[in-house]
């Protein structure tokens, strides 16, 4: 299966959780940190991201960047 990773621009995140619900492999969660706006940004807490980009498609604040890792 394809591998990927995400980068969250934490200050843009509003902790709505739409990406957590959209992730098909459930590797996202709301973190315990607090960003400059007072929200708890989302984070990838375990391995297994497949780089599908569903989290980015559901993000209302364009806070997520998605990378796909190829083995070659």
């Amino acid at each position: 299966m394809a591998k990927g990773r995400i980068e969250v621009s934490e200050d843009y995140c509003k902790s709505c959780g739409l990406c957590v619900a959209a992730c098909p492999v459930k590797v996202l969660r709301i973190s315990d940190r607090i960003n400059m706006k007072g929200h708890r940004p989302v984070e990838q807490y375990k391995e297994g991201c497949i780089g599908c980009g569903m989290c980015a498609i559901s993000c209302p604040d364009a806070a997520i960047e998605v990378y796909r890792i190829s083995e070659e």
Binding site: I57, E65, V66, R68, I69, S70, E71, E72
Partner: peptide, 14 residues
Amino acid sequence: MSETKIYSRPESWM
């Protein structure tokens, strides 16, 4: 190992 960015913040977003 190589990485390709498949999604990033749109350019026209302020």
